[in-house]
Design a protein around this nucleic acid. Structure first.
Lengths: 206, 206
DNA sequence: GGAAAACTGTACTCGCGGTACGGATTGTTG
DNA sequence: CAACAATCCGTACCGCGAGTACAGTTTTCC
């Protein structure tokens, strides 16, 4: 890793924390560079403008989350051959990871950008949309595997169920931030887990 | 209603649309007053600063939502004496209302503020927290009524279940905005409805 | 009609995003 | 070691938007 790349990484790290804490619009470049220890010229050498910063922050964020999900769901499958059990285990692991964050979840960059969309160019918005689609496709794949073994109760659309996990996480992050109670996120993941359990492993309804 | 009050209302209306579309930080006072048809001096006559604007926007938003919820859940109880059925009806009504919004849900002001928190003073943040607590308490009351008749499956915490509705709505708004697909919100409310149905009306699990 | 409320107009400060550009280090490579 | 590029600094500047100050004007309402 060259020196330039290290600097970029430092800027992105500082910027991400600031954006999640205060929103993109309220995060000034000047405070970012002060925290990161370089000058304005240095910053604009690495990023053409604030949009370029957002783009790179997003890529970083999405990559980190992808790796986290890879880990968690691989570990689930590793601990059980049954697709439903594996997923339920993974959800519990996910809840634990979220609960272990010292100051609560810092926030979802996607959501943060969602509520600032006019500030960003098309490329950034496409990136957020694509990453959400990718995550939901991943979950959908898991539910397909589960449904093949356990016929689901009621007429549950598996795409909707996959969306639901994203919704729960994003919504619970907002809830826990708003109420200043980090534990809410963990609890919501676990109640979603109960729902999944009911949908697939309970007796069939009329 | 005096003329001043009408002007305030006009400003708040314009500002809310702008904030939900672009975020609070990206909404300039200048464009708001241009749209509302008054001068800068006129604006600052009504609002001390941007924070005061946020505070009044919030009050307005919370009041509007409160009235909407009052309507919807009253209508549900009106259509069925059974607490579970009444709630399920209300959820369907809620889904319909959300689906009928011409350009999709404009966004949740609470969430918008949540991701900009450092921009606001304590009073604004307390207001968001209190309104969320109020809504969840309302839902919790409904679930109490249901649980009194239908013993819930599994060990479901009713507070968490009440939180879940807020999470689903907030999360689904983000999802539908990010993917530019308004129908996602309706579908998420309906799948939450399925979850509630399963939890209370299904046969008991082991 | 007169006081208070509801504005307008002008002129200013300040911080921030962003540009421009010259120069100074620092690393890298032949 | 020399030369070259990558990396970063300093400074000076522009434009925009939030917010202030304050005097003057119109509207509303009793």
């Amino acid at each position: 890793m060259g020196k330039g790349e290290a600097t970029r990484e430092r800027i992105l790290e500082v910027a991400e924390a600031a954006v999640l804490a205060k929103g993109f619009g309220a995060t000034s470049i000047e405070e970012v560079i002060a925290e990161a220890g370089l000058t304005k010229s240095g910053f604009f050498y690495h990023f053409r403008d604030k949009n370029a910063l957002a783009r790179e922050m997003l890529r970083r964020y999405v990559d980190t989350n992808d790796r986290l999900f890879d880990d968690i769901f691989a570990r689930g499958r590793q601990l059980s051959d049954d697709p439903l059990q594996a997923f339920l285990i993974s959800l519990k692991l996910l809840a634990e990871v979220m609960a272990d964050l010292p100051n609560g979840h810092p926030g979802c960059l996607i959501a943060s950008i969602c509520y600032q969309e006019r500030l960003f160019d098309r490329e950034v918005r496409d990136l957020t949309a694509q990453s959400v689609r990718d995550w939901n496709a991943r979950f959908r794949g898991i539910f397909d595997g589960i449904a093949a073994v356990y016929p689901p109760k009621e007429a549950v659309d598996l795409d909707d169920l996959a969306d639901m996990l994203s919704c729960i996480v994003d919504g619970a992050i907002i809830l826990s931030k708003t109420l200043n109670d980090p534990r809410r996120l963990e609890r919501q993941i676990l109640i979603f887990r109960s729902c999944v359990k009911l949908m697939f492993s309970g007796p069939t309804l009329s």
